[in-house]
């Protein structure tokens, strides 16, 4: 099967119905994104609280990370247990570039994305051949390999102490990231832009190819789509957004720590996805807010926050059996459908 044939096959499959719909909804997405950004950007005018802004910045970092993971888990059916390695890679790559080379922030940003893409392409090329639980394990192994390397290579990464001494944040284009409000607005912009881009990927013909792979990979390859290439592409794309999340985090804490590359970050990402729900695009973002609120409030009241968190997870897993957004969506559909059926 040549590339041309494969492309034609995917086009003929997805073109007719989706094209008109996605064309309109693309403008809608941009509009929603602009409104969301305006609301977020206006927040500091009304609430001066630093804690709130910090909270939104953390949400941006994890929201980008969790949504990019959902591109793999929810859309393509690739359960990655090592997605956090790209979060860590972004944080360390950016931090090291800023500390060692002193290039302007946008240059470091793009360079970090390039580094992440190379890593993701190599690791992905090895991993995406494997299926289901084996894919999960091999990504986990790579994550831990990178974590061990960070711990071992202390001369470069600072070992278990992490990157210390702060990340220099020189001003560029009138944006001074050392200023808290500027950092906040930049994080929001990155979040909204990242979500918008990921939304476009998810709604594109390529996004529908991914859903097809999730539902039946074998048939997808029968109709001439190179499954391996599609999986590798989304693996690399998702890594780029996760890396962006890591960079936001590095800017926020002004450093990078080995925990950023530890497997628990990947675990948290999966957990966020399950909390928010994997069937809606905004599910992971909602999950992020939910988890961070939960974490912050619970730690304030008790030192045993594991128990509380555990019970909440159990409630979602055994009680609702789905994420919050999935549940809300179903409830809403039922409510709308309900009266119509009766009347």
């Amino acid at each position: 099967m040549t590339e041309l044939q494969a492309e034609r096959a995917s086009e003929t499959l997805s073109t007719p119905r989706i094209e008109t719909r996605s064309f309109r909804s693309r403008y809608l997405d941009v509009l929603i994104a602009l409104i969301a950004f305006a609301v977020l950007a206006a927040l500091p005018l009304f609430f001066g609280s630093k804690a709130l802004l910090d909270f939104v910045i953390r949400c941006s970092a994890f929201g980008l990370f969790a949504t990019s993971l959902n591109l793999l888990v929810g859309y393509t059916g690739m359960i990655s247990f090592g997605h956090g390695m790209f979060f860590g890679l972004g944080a360390y790559g950016f931090g090291l570039l800023m500390q060692r080379t002193g290039v302007p922030i946008p240059v470091a940003f793009v360079a970090t994305l390039a580094i992440t893409a190379v890593f993701a392409a190599i690791i992905g090329a090895i991993c995406v051949r494997l299926k289901e639980i084996y894919f999960a394990f091999v990504t986990l192994a790579f994550q831990m390999l990178i974590h061990s390397t960070i711990l071992t290579w202390a001369s470069l990464t600072g070992g278990d102490q992490g990157l210390r001494g702060g990340i220099p944040r020189p001003a560029f284009l009138g944006i001074d990231l050392a200023n808290h409000v500027h950092l906040y607005i930049t994080s929001c912009a990155l979040l909204v832009l990242g979500l918008l881009l990921m939304r476009q990927i998810a709604q594109s013909p390529f996004g529908y190819t991914l859903r097809m792979i999730r539902d039946n990979a074998r048939r997808t390859s029968f109709i001439g789509i190179d499954v391996w290439r599609a999986k590798l592409t989304i693996f690399v794309l998702a890594a780029l957004f996760a890396s962006t999340g890591g960079m936001v985090m590095a800017l926020f804490v002004s450093g990078a720590y080995p925990e950023f590359a530890y497997w628990t970050i990947s675990g948290e990402g999966i957990f966020i996805n399950m909390l928010g729900g994997v069937t809606t695009f905004l599910g992971p973002t909602v999950g992020t807010v939910l988890l961070l609120v939960l974490n912050d409030t619970v730690t304030r009241f008790t030192e045993y926050h594991g128990i509380v968190l555990g019970v909440v997870i159990l409630f979602f897993a055994i009680g609702l059996r789905k994420g919050l957004m999935d549940y809300v969506l179903e409830w809403y559909a039922q409510r709308r459908g309900g009266p119509g059926e009766r009347g």
Binding site: F271, M274, I307, I313, A317
Partner: peptide
């Protein structure tokens, strides 16, 4: 994922 989540909850608990 649900199974993993239940287990994860119990790791914490």
């Amino acid at each position: 994922l649900m199974q993993l989540l239940v287990c994860y909850a119990f790791v914490l608990i």
